[in-house]
Design a binder for these strands. Structure first.
Lengths: 210, 210
DNA sequence: TGTGATGGATAGTATCAGTATCCATAAGCG
DNA sequence: CGCTTATGGATACTGATACTATCCATCACA
């Protein structure tokens, strides 16, 4: 495949493909002469993955790069690969909450994690986000939602188990890692749109009269 | 409160507050003279909400504006207010999937919705996202994840009911609408960080040896 | 009376995700 | 063989977003 065919096969414009090549998201094609390269099915597959992450899941290009790098480093233990992808997905946010709000939230989240028996490294980026979110909800006067932390955790635990079961059926390690990453990211898009639909449907019934 | 005090109270820089004023995210203070305005607790509250949405939930400023406008239009029925906020949250995405992948996904999603008895308008933006996501998962060879659509929907339905119950305890309509919006948006941040933590924890146990 | 803050307007900046342009070369066609 | 079109690689440009910075004519307050 030359670049034009790759473009037609994936519906990604040629200049965009060139951009991804420049940025190192897509490995270079095999050069047959200084200005002639050929791309294979692997490239098409990778390109489709990039588009799904960038367009659908709105993952920034720089993060997509890190995620793909973690996928490509199959010398790492699987758990470490997943950890890297997670880190790429959770940008270090500015701390929004006040000192004391954060302290309270930290205690609450830590207790939640102990209660559930989760093993989480203290540096996990998602932990910081969770703490900031709980603190923000408190500050915004939404304490009742915070009261549902356990209910959320229940639900989340349940489908995470399912996901991991599903994904474990993958024959090779490579495919396994890729499935986990796709599942993590597109799964989120899936959940969030399902949630919006559920909300609309339930709220329509509940507040017909308001 | 003058702008400097508002800035100190919320830890938002003065130029940023001015920017939000310009963009119409924050209502102007009450002018006592041509260059002297005073802001109240309502402004501080609004500002904290803006920050939570922009920094924590990464909602683009333009969308935040629409969301706030829907909150402020309490002449609309509640369900319509929520619908507007939803629309602001789901940017119309480019269609990524191929014709036939989308057709298949549409059928599957429609069946899911019927099976669940959800009432969803066909123009709901989340619907389009859901369809594109299912199509993308298929294209990327993750059919097994698509098989879990019902399991996801179960979980999502369960906590959406809880949220709506919680939020319904709010005394006034204004507060109710605000709670729904905050719950929708920050709830998503909450769920996604819980999910990442659950994944790390489960994957650590499951793949110690990989 | 003068020092610092304020409202309002306008301009500038950094980052991001592409697009566009150029060029020397190569491939395919008649 | 010549001509058109495509290609790889480099560099430059663009439009959107979310602020920052600067200016200036007031204004409050010590």
């Amino acid at each position: 495949m030359r670049i034009g065919e790759l473009s037609r096969a994936t519906e990604v414009p040629v200049p965009t493909i060139k951009y991804y090549l420049r940025e190192g998201l897509l490995p270079a094609g095999e050069l047959s002469s200084p200005n002639q390269a050929s791309y294979g099915e692997r490239h098409a597959r990778r390109l489709r993955l990039i588009r799904a992450l960038v367009e659908l899941a709105q993952v920034p290009v720089a993060q997509v790069k890190e995620i793909l790098e973690s996928l490509d480093s199959d010398d790492l233990p699987l758990h470490e690969q997943i950890g890297r992808a997670h880190r790429a997905l959770t940008p270090t946010r500015k701390q929004t909450a006040s000192e004391e709000a954060r302290a309270a939230a930290t205690t609450q989240v830590t207790e939640l994690i102990t209660r559930r028996g989760w093993s989480v490294e203290p540096e996990a980026p998602a932990l910081a986000t969770l703490i900031e979110t709980v603190a923000a909800l408190r500050t915004l006067g939404q304490d009742d939602l915070v009261g549902f932390l356990d209910a959320y955790a229940d639900a989340v635990e349940r489908f995470t188990e399912l996901e991991i079961d599903a994904v474990t059926t993958n024959p090779t390690r490579d495919q396994l890692a890729e499935s986990v990453v796709i599942g993590t990211i597109l799964g989120e898009t899936l959940i969030s749109s399902l949630r919006l639909l559920a909300q609309e449907s339930i709220s329509a019934h509940r507040w017909k009269d308001h």
